[in-house]
Design a protein around this nucleic acid. Structure first.
Lengths: 302, 302
DNA sequence: CATGTTGATACTCTTTATATATCAAATGAG
DNA sequence: CTCATTTGATATATAAAGAGTATCAACATG
């Protein structure tokens, strides 16, 4: 069953006149006669009753007409959906993120994206950086907010944040009110760390900060989520070294104190597959890039 | 947008492998590549991501796939509906009838038809014989149960009933209990008649029955519906001469008495347009014809 | 580095669709 | 009643599109 024949049928069913229908279709009359005949053969029954002076729909033709209309409508719908996905108006954007990104500019990017593409949806998955890299390369994720140790094959990335570390102390801690402390004064504290499995980069960075100051931290807890870590500190169960952005959590019971000469930074990245052609992703990358370069630092709360 | 391309797209989306998909489609691989390329041009965006070792759907292709499936499904549906209408399984049968036919075998035919074609629907319109003939010739009705004065151009018909007339008297009438009466004894009664406008054949027949007996009936009421006529008789407002089948109404207050030597019959017909090819009508004509010739006289109540 | 995949391309041939010209049947005007 | 006109169907030639064969470049594998 060819689509052209359906179009011919629809027009003829509306005109009930071969020559007029042919004119509307911008073809000559004979091919129309032939096409209708072929359609009737395929269905196995006449669709029109012809006399030299009158063309009318048979009951079969009358039943077929609305169905033919639906086919054409469905076809337009399919084309339109595909084109809207292609233009980035519509579609699904799968993004990974490590929890800390919620304290950086990620929510701002999401809000801008929603405003720019109200028909599009976003699926967020909280994953470690390593898992994100795997998922992005396999195509499971379109992009991710993560920490990259160095360049990764196939991935492009943007630097979202370059932050130094601050100490995260319970408010009850004697140093909680200090302006700035040396890392060394924390040598006898017990440390709450992100699990090395989840975030090896963070783990190693903290270890190296301490090592530079001449001690190896005593680890009381290794946790898998940043909220857990901060809460443990708030409960007085340890201290932590965290990127500065965590100072924005607003959680009670914790204080953040500048570290003297930490000299080690936390790099936050936005990364995606270089070869991807997903239009929504391309738009999102543009959005992130232009927003970052415009150096607007306001944070949208949602 | 050609349908074949859609089929190709669907198979390729499922196989994600040009050669396998081409094999499943029973074509060679190059035309498949070309067809997909054309489809992509029409949509305006790539549907597949190709590498020498891996074919995968782009987001556009993934969004297009279920829509393409729906198109094909809708197409099958359209074809199937048309074919079921063609086979008479499905469709609409528009029938006219004059009221009295409900007391003849018309309900039986309808019941048989419903049993034979449970998916088909029937639209019934109570119309005078003349209106039915016009509607059948114009195609508004497929057929009708009516009284035909004689052969009608374009129409075929079957004789459904050939009944003599009986007298319809109020139960309170002195002759109500009689076995048989002469028409002449009704000469001083007042007659309830079907309107000549609605049913000229009936009107003229009754007049001629009376005329043969040497009188002209006094008409008290002309009514448009058989129920009205019988009810008026039941209320004692007149008598009527009616085809025998009306004795089956079961209404209280009326008695039916045989007429001696009425010699005039009421012919009930089933008529349809000779040139019609509506499969449901053809089935129904067959049904009526075979049922009539099988001489089964039982009436189905529903 | 040779070999066997993959999908894309070039070219030919067949099929299909279309247009022009024409026909038979029916209608309407004179 | 006759002739011109209109209807949809048909015949034939031409142009477009589809499919097949052969081949290519890119990549993976041993």
């Amino acid at each position: 069953m060819e689509l052209r024949r359906l179009q011919y049928f629809i027009v003829l069913a509306e005109e009930l006149h071969f020559r007029r229908a042919a004119a509307r279709l911008a073809i000559s009359q004979p091919p129309l006669s032939i096409a209708i005949k072929q359609l009737e053969e395929e269905i196995g029954a006449p669709l029109f009753e012809r006399s030299t002076k009158l063309v009318s729909l048979t009951p079969v033709g009358a039943a077929f007409y609305p169905e033919a209309l639906r086919i054409v409508a469905q076809l337009d719908r399919a084309r339109s959906i595909a084109q809207r996905v292609a233009s980035g108006e519509r579609g699904v954007l799968r993004l990974g993120f490590v929890g800390g990104m919620l304290l950086r500019r990620m929510p701002e990017f999401l809000a801008l994206h929603r405003r720019a593409h109200p028909e599009a949806s976003v699926i967020l998955r909280e994953l470690s950086s390593g898992e994100q890299i795997r998922s992005i390369r396999s195509g499971e994720l379109a992009a991710g907010f993560l920490h990259m140790g160095g360049p990764v094959e196939e991935l492009d990335h943007l630097l979202m944040a370059d932050e130094d570390f601050v100490a995260c102390l319970p408010s009850s801690h004697p140093l909680a009110g200090a302006e700035i402390v040396k890392v060394k004064v924390l040598r006898d504290e017990r440390f709450v760390m992100f699990s090395r499995e989840i975030s090896p980069g963070y783990f190693d960075t903290v270890i190296s900060i301490c090592a530079r100051e001449g001690f190896s931290p005593t680890i009381s807890f290794e946790v898998g989520h940043w909220l857990t870590a901060i809460l443990l500190v708030a409960k007085g169960l340890g201290v932590a070294l965290v990127p500065r952005c965590f100072a924005n959590t607003g959680l009670r019971g914790v204080s953040f104190v500048e570290l003297k000469a930490a000299r080690t930074h936390s790099l936050a990245h936005f990364a995606w597959k270089r070869t991807s052609s997903d239009p929504l992703l391309l738009r999102f990358v543009d959005l992130v890039r232009t927003t970052l370069s415009s150096r607007v630092n306001k944070h949208l709360s949602d």
